[in-house]
Amino acid sequence: MKRRWKFCFLAFVWVGVISFGTLSFAEKGPSILNKVGKAAGAAIKAVKTEGHPEVSEQEKLTPCFECHKEATPDIEKEWYNSGHGIANVKCYQCHGTFENMKKVPSDDNCYVCHANAKNHTKPGKTCWACHPAHNFPVKKK
Protein backbone atom coordinates (compact mmCIF):
# COMPACT_ATOMS: atom_id res chain seq x y z
CA MET A 1 0.00 0.00 0.00
CA LYS A 2 2.86 2.35 0.86
CA ARG A 3 4.31 1.81 -2.57
CA ARG A 4 1.03 2.75 -4.16
CA TRP A 5 0.88 5.97 -2.18
CA LYS A 6 4.41 6.77 -3.17
CA PHE A 7 3.54 6.18 -6.82
CA CYS A 8 0.49 8.33 -6.58
CA PHE A 9 2.33 11.13 -4.84
CA LEU A 10 5.16 11.08 -7.34
CA ALA A 11 2.70 11.14 -10.20
CA PHE A 12 1.17 14.29 -8.79
CA VAL A 13 4.50 15.95 -8.37
CA TRP A 14 5.42 15.01 -11.92
CA VAL A 15 2.21 16.49 -13.28
CA GLY A 16 2.78 19.60 -11.22
CA VAL A 17 6.34 20.13 -12.32
CA ILE A 18 6.02 19.19 -15.96
CA SER A 19 2.77 20.91 -16.68
CA PHE A 20 2.73 23.98 -14.52
CA GLY A 21 6.16 24.90 -13.34
CA THR A 22 5.79 27.10 -10.32
CA LEU A 23 2.80 27.29 -8.02
CA SER A 24 0.80 30.43 -7.66
CA PHE A 25 -1.76 31.56 -5.15
CA ALA A 26 -5.46 31.03 -5.08
CA GLU A 27 -7.53 33.60 -6.80
CA LYS A 28 -9.99 35.66 -4.84
CA GLY A 29 -12.54 38.11 -6.00
CA PRO A 30 -12.20 41.82 -5.37
CA SER A 31 -13.19 42.02 -1.74
CA ILE A 32 -16.08 44.28 -0.84
CA LEU A 33 -14.35 44.83 2.47
CA ASN A 34 -11.11 45.78 0.75
CA LYS A 35 -13.06 48.41 -1.04
CA VAL A 36 -13.93 50.04 2.26
CA GLY A 37 -10.34 49.93 3.38
CA LYS A 38 -10.41 46.88 5.63
CA ALA A 39 -8.32 43.79 5.63
CA ALA A 40 -9.11 41.08 3.12
CA GLY A 41 -11.77 38.55 4.11
CA ALA A 42 -10.31 35.17 4.90
CA ALA A 43 -6.61 34.54 5.14
CA ILE A 44 -5.08 31.67 3.21
CA LYS A 45 -3.30 29.41 5.59
CA ALA A 46 -1.18 26.39 5.04
CA VAL A 47 -2.52 23.84 7.49
CA LYS A 48 -0.60 20.79 8.51
CA THR A 49 -2.23 17.59 7.43
CA GLU A 50 -2.85 15.06 10.14
CA GLY A 51 -4.04 11.49 9.77
CA HIS A 52 -3.13 11.35 6.09
CA PRO A 53 0.15 11.08 4.18
CA GLU A 54 1.59 14.51 3.46
CA VAL A 55 0.15 16.02 0.28
CA SER A 56 0.40 19.47 -1.21
CA GLU A 57 -2.36 22.05 -1.22
CA GLN A 58 -3.04 21.39 -4.88
CA GLU A 59 -3.28 17.66 -4.30
CA LYS A 60 -5.86 18.33 -1.62
CA LEU A 61 -8.18 19.46 -4.39
CA THR A 62 -8.46 15.91 -5.70
CA PRO A 63 -11.58 13.92 -4.82
CA CYS A 64 -10.56 11.22 -2.33
CA PHE A 65 -11.67 8.31 -4.49
CA GLU A 66 -9.43 9.36 -7.38
CA CYS A 67 -6.29 8.51 -5.38
CA HIS A 68 -7.87 5.74 -3.39
CA LYS A 69 -8.76 3.81 -6.54
CA GLU A 70 -5.01 3.24 -6.62
CA ALA A 71 -4.05 3.57 -2.97
CA THR A 72 -6.75 1.41 -1.40
CA PRO A 73 -8.57 -0.28 -4.29
CA ASP A 74 -10.38 -2.84 -2.16
CA ILE A 75 -11.83 -0.19 0.11
CA GLU A 76 -12.76 2.01 -2.83
CA LYS A 77 -14.49 -0.92 -4.50
CA GLU A 78 -16.40 -1.85 -1.37
CA TRP A 79 -17.56 1.73 -0.95
CA TYR A 80 -18.46 2.14 -4.62
CA ASN A 81 -20.73 -0.89 -4.61
CA SER A 82 -22.32 -0.13 -1.26
CA GLY A 83 -25.46 1.85 -0.55
CA HIS A 84 -23.20 4.72 0.44
CA GLY A 85 -21.41 4.55 -2.90
CA ILE A 86 -24.59 4.50 -4.98
CA ALA A 87 -26.17 7.26 -2.91
CA ASN A 88 -23.00 9.38 -3.23
CA VAL A 89 -22.13 9.43 0.46
CA LYS A 90 -18.54 10.53 0.08
CA CYS A 91 -15.38 9.78 2.05
CA TYR A 92 -15.19 13.22 3.68
CA GLN A 93 -18.64 12.86 5.22
CA CYS A 94 -17.24 10.29 7.64
CA HIS A 95 -13.50 10.91 7.60
CA GLY A 96 -13.49 14.72 7.31
CA THR A 97 -11.09 16.72 5.20
CA PHE A 98 -7.39 17.15 5.73
CA GLU A 99 -7.54 19.52 8.68
CA ASN A 100 -10.02 17.45 10.67
CA MET A 101 -9.34 14.02 9.21
CA LYS A 102 -9.90 10.88 11.21
CA LYS A 103 -8.72 7.56 9.87
CA VAL A 104 -11.27 5.91 12.15
CA PRO A 105 -14.27 8.21 12.37
CA SER A 106 -16.37 8.67 15.45
CA ASP A 107 -19.76 6.98 15.71
CA ASP A 108 -21.16 10.50 15.94
CA ASN A 109 -20.70 10.77 12.19
CA CYS A 110 -22.94 7.74 11.66
CA TYR A 111 -25.66 9.19 13.87
CA VAL A 112 -25.95 12.29 11.66
CA CYS A 113 -28.02 10.07 9.35
CA HIS A 114 -28.65 6.97 11.44
CA ALA A 115 -29.80 8.46 14.73
CA ASN A 116 -32.09 5.54 15.52
CA ALA A 117 -29.19 3.11 15.24
CA LYS A 118 -28.02 4.40 18.60
CA ASN A 119 -30.85 2.42 20.16
CA HIS A 120 -29.44 -0.93 19.08
CA THR A 121 -25.72 -0.21 19.38
CA LYS A 122 -24.31 -2.34 22.15
CA PRO A 123 -22.40 -0.45 24.86
CA GLY A 124 -18.71 -0.23 24.08
CA LYS A 125 -19.21 -1.38 20.48
CA THR A 126 -18.75 0.67 17.35
CA CYS A 127 -21.25 0.67 14.50
CA TRP A 128 -18.78 -1.13 12.26
CA ALA A 129 -18.28 -3.95 14.76
CA CYS A 130 -21.55 -5.33 13.34
CA HIS A 131 -21.68 -3.46 9.99
CA PRO A 132 -18.14 -3.76 8.61
CA ALA A 133 -16.77 -0.64 6.90
CA HIS A 134 -16.88 0.28 3.99
CA ASN A 135 -19.92 -1.48 2.65
CA PHE A 136 -21.79 -1.57 5.97
CA PRO A 137 -23.94 -4.65 5.31
CA VAL A 138 -27.29 -4.84 7.05
CA LYS A 139 -28.92 -8.16 7.89
CA LYS A 140 -32.23 -8.59 6.12
CA LYS A 141 -35.06 -8.93 8.58
Binding site: L61, P63, E66, N100, Y111, V112
Partner: peptide, 22 residues
Protein backbone atom coordinates in the same frame (compact mmCIF):
# COMPACT_ATOMS: atom_id res chain seq x y z
CA UNK B 1 -10.04 10.97 -16.13
CA UNK B 2 -6.78 11.68 -14.39
CA UNK B 3 -5.82 13.74 -11.45
CA UNK B 4 -4.50 16.37 -13.83
CA UNK B 5 -7.97 17.72 -14.40
CA UNK B 6 -8.26 18.50 -10.73
CA UNK B 7 -5.01 20.31 -10.31
CA UNK B 8 -5.54 23.51 -8.44
CA UNK B 9 -4.05 25.52 -5.69
CA UNK B 10 -4.93 26.83 -2.29
CA UNK B 11 -8.48 27.35 -1.22
CA UNK B 12 -10.01 30.73 -0.58
CA UNK B 13 -11.20 30.08 2.95
CA UNK B 14 -10.02 29.86 6.51
CA UNK B 15 -10.40 26.55 8.24
CA UNK B 16 -11.72 26.18 11.75
CA UNK B 17 -11.78 23.49 14.34
CA UNK B 18 -15.31 22.31 14.94
CA UNK B 19 -16.96 21.06 18.06
CA UNK B 20 -17.85 17.41 18.20
CA UNK B 21 -21.43 16.73 17.14
CA UNK B 22 -22.26 15.28 20.54
Amino acid sequence: LTAASYVGLELPFTLHKEASAA
